[in-house]
Amino acid sequence: MRTNKKQYDRMVKNTSPRSRVLRNCVWAFLVGGSFCLTGEVLINAYRAAAFTLGDARLLASVTLVAISAVLTAVGWYGRLAKRAGAGTLVPITGFANAVVSPAIEFRSEGLITGVACKMFIIAGPVIVYGTLSSVVYGVILFVKGRYGL
């Protein structure tokens, strides 16, 4: 073939349509912002119900997880995500979607070998690297506290 890899790479870059960044960002802003706004409303509602700020935040997260699970189960979360992109990916609802969707998907392979084994196939990295970085931070805090560095 007369076209080499380098030339072809350039051809592919020039021919492939680019993402519509501005439109995507507007969607991400509006949808992502709305989830956060919902979170804020929930926090205030739980605080009004005499929960501490910490507990209210936790309960707000749990509520958002539940909302996301229901939206995922009826198939609306995926549809929203087609437009919202990072607006549905980045909030905690995206984390819940990443846990719930493989659980539903792999139900056909059984409750143990399917649902349980595959549940964290997408969300797993967040837990692994989040926990690892918290451990690193913990070691730093511990060493600082013990030796006063």
Binding site: P17, T72, G75, A81, L89
Partner: peptide, 17 residues
């Protein structure tokens, strides 16, 4: 989709290509 990409109900944006 479930073999090559992600679960069907997973929210993801498809690239223009």
């Amino acid at each position: 989709e479930r073999q090559f990409r992600t679960p069907l109900d997973y929210g993801g944006k498809r690239t223009p290509t």
